[in-house]
Nucleic acid binder design. Sequence first.
RNA 1: GCUCGGUUCGUCUAGGGGUUAGGACACAAGGUUUUCAUCCUUGCAACAGGGGUUCGAUUCCCCUACCGAGUACCA
Length: 508
Amino acid sequence: MPVRVRFAPSPTGPLHIGGVRTALYNFLFARKHRGTFCIRIEDTDQNRFVPAAEEYIFESLSWLGIVADEGPLNGGPYAPYRQSERKEIYKDYVYRLVESGHAYYAFDTTAELEDARNKYKSSGPDVFQYGAKTRELMRNSVSLPPGEWEKLITGGVPFVIRLNVPADEEIRFNDEIRGEVTVGSSTIDDKVLMKSDGMPTYHLANVVDDHIMKITHVIRGEEWLPSAPAHCLLYRFFGWDETMPSFAHLPLLLKPEGSGKLSKRDAEKGGFPIFPINWKDPESGEISRGFRESGYLPEATVNFLALLGWNPGTQQEIFSMDELVEAFSIGKVNKSGAKFDIEKAKFFNQQYIKTRPIGTLREFLEMRLEENGTPYSPARIDKVIEALKDRVTFPDEFYTQSLYFFSQPGEFDMNVIQKKLTPDMASILKEISSGIRAMKVTSASGDFKELISAVMIKNGLQPGQAMQLIRVLVTGTTTGVDLMLTLEILGPGEVAERIDSALLKLTQ
RNA sequence: GCUCGGUUCGUCUAGGGGUUAGGACACAAGGUUUUCAUCCUUGCAACAGGGGUUCGAUUCCCCUACCGAGUACCA
């Protein structure tokens, strides 16, 4: 049977990075088994629906290279892929359950349910559960005589449809990650399957759609593990035992410090992103930063996420998407939650910047230079990127660390100037600069080194003594790209001029 | 509370009845680079606790502790 998996997000806000990982694992699994990866939008909650969220999901996934074979964007044999557009389908199925006695009507109001819960809370250690033990006490088509509840329905009283969970039996299912899980049915409540607005709940819609769409493997977050037995029950009641998908419940992403699951607050506190791309809250206008806008490359983000909860069992850590597909196996996914550590993400980013072709990095620098109206020659861009490639973690540093390549320094490290720029040194530096001025335009770093050394030795000094000073005169700072390489990139004319003008400024 | 999961260096993890418990990030030291970064070397550092089973347990079993999730007309 061909493998078919789905990623089923709810458009209730920005897609959390944990959700992105779920999507990624589904995608990898599908590719690995030459199967099909579907995206299904689970928008059955009209109260929490956020219009911009769906577009956000697709933009995020496409940035990362996670593309769906079937979904709302490109359609597919089981369209529509938005649950809100499939409303009638679920109705049809849920009434089959009502007819077979596996589901029933319930008329309890929100207030009545609240009362029931409060009563239980105050009277003992038990928590109210709508189920085999309490069903008879509530207002529903099990407790009420047929004539009575039928009248309620024809009279237009709002109702929900609940799953009729058997009183006492063991439900067993196999989880690809956790092994066999056994749960007593008495601990499962009579879940609402269809809400009073006629929309299905997750449980119904999910099972029905997974069946219709011939999903073979359900790979989803651990938060679904407790309700998986109820889903099993649903498959059985529908008579779909034979084709029930296998389950794989993924471990959660945890806070970097302390305990609990990763939240937006952690991101704000720690100054790191937990959303794939920027998200602007439509109500407050508040912007949550994304990995993309924070300077993480998509391949680094994917690599980082893939290894958060999964490991191929080898020592390899750097994986392209194709390599991930090749190595991925659902059985190697960890059981326990992984703390989110942004330092590792930075490491991957650094690695990928290092190995990226220059042409794919160019735009990062050009964009920033243009933004700031800094004039530049295209030829210099590539040299600067080449020089900085091994030393940056984020693409933005191509700009922040290369300012002196595009404009003369306005300030100088005065510590060095005061300590080292003696009148004697000043005149030696003048000698050096006029030597440099006479050099060929195409001089290489070695030529600069040779010239500087020659002048220094001629004056009875170690060449090393001039290096830091020249660096400060030319770039303003004491750190940066290899000095000789810096001089080569700037070229003799500009170097000489910078030294002269700096000397003029600093020796008055 | 109850149900279901989980627990190897600070973090991500490999391993699995007999190992010097391996790698990576981070951190530290040294080397290279006449600077900075890269790079290289080295160091630091872990089987939650208690009972079993066994010649032998970090590994298998049980209990405890701790952590997480769920316990909605949310997904």
